[in-house]
Design a protein around this nucleic acid. Structure first.
Lengths: 350, 350
DNA sequence: ATTCGGTGTGGAATCGTTTCCACAACTGCC
DNA sequence: GGCAGTTGTGGAAACGATTCCACACCGAAT
């Protein structure tokens, strides 16, 4: 392995000049710059990032803390981040902070403290208080994609608005019995899901349906949505005509459940999701589109700005675009009246 | 930020002793070890990994080169790798080498050359020749999960065997018209998919059905399997009674297509996959189970062995377990005879 | 003619560790 | 009692870059 001193020697200059010639900073004559670069190339010289980081304090590496890799949204964001970092020549260190695992604890206690990165991107992390504290203690720029971290730069869609618009889309089609599927029932569940539920409640209220909201608890996953929907749709008398799903995975689970139960979409049941998932087109799913890959790329841009010293922390709320496909339609007249026993208020089934 | 000299000074020892006390190597008295550790803890001392790497040459970091993040198998392997690395206190640098992208080119040309890792894990990489060359030039231990890299340690299931057993499962149930769905038709497609197809061909031959094989080309994804199957299953006369899918995503796409076309699974059509995907249970999919998370963990173990200097490169072939669920069943007697025009040989539809 | 600012270069210090080596003290054995 | 081996410690030399500083040269302006 050849070091910069080898390059310098063969180019007939000092280490300092060689360093300047290669990095492009400081004064170097055109002649020597070319000479040094040529020698470096012929030697296949690659600078030691450790040595460089040691003296400059910059790692040219970004840490990404992310709780899941197998969910569509997270994988997409991560791919977006990675591609933006590659363009900039920056490395990506991955911290898979799966909630409740020992790995997550160690990430916050040990790994992050090593500061092997210039900045951090947190994706849908929903940190506990003590985790957030650690995150801020690090003293490196932090950008969050999805999440409500106090001081950091945050990117995301307006989830309340998305939930509200998904709901309005259905009420506008004449639906009155509309359920919201997805999210937990206990205090600690994703704030994103809570906000979407909040949007749904607001949308229902706007349509004068505040008394007839229904929240079906479900795992935020395709099988979760399927299982919850089998229960929900099984009871014919109280069956809703419209469903707002917390995300497309749940929505697709619902559509599959409906098909299995012989319920036709959209004539018997309209389903709207949030995401524009890879499978949305295949299921003709009406949804509020977000572009997680772009969110990932944007996160890198904002982090870069903060690293450049430019940036105040700021909040970017993108707007989701409604894509109408064939999973929603006008309510069937047979369903347009309430059954004798509409379930009032919020129910938590599942 | 306090360095080891601060720790040493406050503990009343030299830097060398402090270093030994903290790392646990070399001779240090019990008394001073405790003292030094206490001081370090009270200062919140975290060693600079750059400085340490610079002198030791070890980074305590593993690079993972992976072509996709959004596909189930890859995400699972990555999660397995990550969790095994976390346990060992090792960092993970991610290189998302999406085929055909400029990012992939830069990874092989620039990023890997920096050698910011002690070893590499390649997941389903299927490198081109010049890429493989780069990989070996690096001179660091390399473990591949799925793939046929010449000199590296390789982990994977026996894909030929999996394809063969999936096929035999169907022939054993009396199926004779069995198609294989998934994979490309041109020369350069994933060797895994080719091997599974090979297993299918072998299984058909064993059952005396060598003349009646059918390969349906499709994207290796759920929508890909869906689209290919809609075409395949649409033609009632030549419709197969059994389908071997290249993986569960394709198999599930096929099941969804069948349901939409009113074809009942398994009475009209049996479908078998390979993977045991997250959704397999929900679709009652019969499949050959592989455990990608475990493969990821195993990759880390093998890499660790090679880093320890112990290991000869070796090849680990895990065996896939057949899980019979409700997507396969005995062939319906109405279908048990060939139609007038069975398509002989290998066809590439799609 | 002197001064000044812009160029170009090299020497040396620096980043924060680990590790080699020298040295001292203590143990146990012949 | 001498001597080898073990234990404990500190000084100093790495590791491989960047960067500060000093110096030299040049042309232009005073």
């Amino acid at each position: 392995m050849s070091g910069i001193s080898d390059v310098a020697r063969l180019a007939g200059v000092s280490k300092s000049t060689a360093s300047r010639a290669l990095s492009g900073s400081g004064y170097v004559s055109e002649r020597t710059r070319i000479k040094v670069r040529a020698v470096a190339a012929s030697l296949g010289y690659v600078p030691s990032s450790n040595a460089a980081s040691l003296v400059t304090g910059r790692t040219r590496n970004v840490g990404v803390v992310i709780p899941y890799l197998h969910r569509w949204f997270f994988a997409e964001v991560l791919e977006g981040i990675q591609s933006a970092l590659l363009e900039r020549g920056l490395d990506l260190t991955l911290y898979d902070a799966n909630p409740g695992t020992d790995g997550r604890r160690r990430i916050f206690e040990d790994f992050l403290a090593r500061k092997r990165f210039d900045g951090l991107i947190a994706v849908g992390l929903e940190p506990e208080d003590h985790e957030l504290e650690r995150l801020l203690m690090i003293g490196r720029p932090l950008v969050s994609v999805v999440g409500s971290d106090a001081d950091a730069t945050v990117i995301g869609i307006d989830d309340d608005d998305a939930g509200r618009r998904a709901t309005s889309h259905l009420t506008g089609l004449g639906h009155r019995r509309i359920a919201f599927v997805g999210g937990g029932s206990t205090a600690r569940w994703a704030s994103v899901d809570r906000r979407r539920l909040g949007g749904y409640l607001a949308g229902m209220a706007e349509a004068g349906l505040a008394e007839h909201t229904q929240h079906v608890v479900s795992d935020v996953s395709l099988p979760g949505g399927y299982a919850a929907s089998v229960d929900l749709l099984g009871a014919a008398r109280t069956r809703p005509t419209g469903i707002v799903a917390v995300c497309d995975e749940v929505a697709i689970g619902t559509i599959i459940a409906a098909r299995r139960l012989g319920i036709r979409v959209p004539s018997d049941l309209s389903v709207v999701g949030i995401d524009d998932h890879e499978y949305a087109e295949m299921f003709a799913l009406t949804t509020l589109q977000q572009l997680p890959r772009e969110q990932g790329r944007l996160a890198v841009e904002l982090l870069e700005a903060e690293l450049g010293g430019a940036g105040e922390p700021r909040r970017v709320e993108l707007s989701a675009r409604l894509i109408v496909r064939a999973s929603t339609g006008p309510v069937d007249s047979r369903h347009s009246v309430f059954s004798s026993d509409p379930r009032p208020g919020i129910d938590h089934i599942g």
